[in-house]
Design a protein around this nucleic acid. Structure first.
Lengths: 197, 197
DNA sequence: CGCCGAGTTGAACTGAATCAAGAAACGTGG
DNA sequence: CCACGTTTCTTGATTCAGTTCAACTCGGCG
């Protein structure tokens, strides 16, 4: 089974010292989340950023008509949190739920800020995370504005082929911004095109 | 005419010292952009973040079918840049163009990073900008996933009433992700509802 | 004056949603 | 290990929001 370790992730994605990292991770809580359980619910203030070591989380909202909209999937090696809620200390509009039994490391913001002030290379690393997040969000907006359901689906399977196999199809639909029926039809059409070769 | 000054903006939105700020702004270039001119074009690497002192910029992309999609308007007091392009040193997929004669202050990334490392309260300020940006992007995605054209328009006029008056209507449509005709009809229906009271 | 970009309106069209029903897959308890 | 209910996925029929295309108006501006 897939599993990522925060220390090895950090040491291969930053210039931080091994020793430093071990101290860092010692101070963080591990949180185990059972399939179906929530670590954040609408209205709560988000208190930490989670690094997923194994398992899978979803980050989503529920709109005024009761429909769910998945903003992000977080499999092994990913971070999730409502950064806005954490930073501005405001109630979140989102849910974070485990889609599989999940092991995470929780980093609280206070701690991150303190670290960023002390350690330049941690600041640099944290900045990379933030910018990467911004890049993703920006791309997503661009895609929602310009691409059809089919194009969005093709992008999805290119970028997250593994997730496709791990979540029910209606959640992929919810991520893409189409109905389950809609996605089913998109897939059908693609299968037909595919066989015409 | 509306006009924002970077120093006064910073001194009212951060804990930075007046003296420090003046030194800071001295080192930044002022860039004047004539109406219609570009400060960033697709394929270029974005080199700086712009603070708009007066005027108005748009940040947009052009998709494979040749359609424009406006991701952001930047009036006085706002920052614009392709943060991903700056940070990761990658070609941008976006354009930044002046919709009015515009005066900006250009902050280059290297400079910002250096400052954030030295000065804790600048780091804090920069962090607030990044998180605010993330919040906006996230809200936008959420809205695109859940709201109808009419709802998006109503949100828009609530949040950016001034911009509505300063840009052609087809640009608002482009921001909302509808066609100019589509927006025209939304407005018509709203006007009718409104008169039925 | 005549042109041109912006906005509006109508008619036809289309991608995707909705509603409803059935088939397949899944999980849980007996 | 089977039986049952529940969830997921598919398919069809219908509806609807929003697009496309085309024609027309209006207001500014050379």
């Amino acid at each position: 089974m897939n599993s990522f370790n925060l220390i090895s992730f950090l040491s291969s994605n930053s210039d931080l010292e091994q020793e430093f990292l071990e101290q860092l991770v010692d101070k963080c809580r591990k949180i185990e989340i059972k399939k179906g359980a929530f670590i954040l619910q609408e209205g709560e203030i988000c208190r930490q950023t989670l690094f997923v070591e194994s398992g899978l989380l979803r980050y989503y909202s529920i709109d005024s008509k009761g429909k769910e909209h998945i903003l992000q999937f977080a499999p092994e090696g990913w971070f999730v949190s409502d950064r806005a809620s954490i930073f501005f200390n405001q109630p979140s509009a989102f849910f974070i739920q485990a889609l599989e039994d999940t092991t995470t490391v929780a980093l609280d913001e206070h701690f991150i800020l303190k670290l960023a002030q002390k350690d330049t290379s941690f600041l640099e690393f944290n900045n990379r995370l933030l910018h990467n997040h911004i890049r993703q969000l920006q791309n997503r907006i661009n895609q929602l504005l310009s691409a059809t359901a089919e194009e969005r689906y093709l992008d999805f399977i290119k970028i997250y082929p593994d997730i496709l196999l791990r979540v029910p199809q209606w959640m992929v639909a919810s991520y893409l911004g189409v109905t389950p029926e809609g996605l089913s039809r998109v897939r059908k059409e693609l299968a037909q095109k595919h066989s015409n070769r």
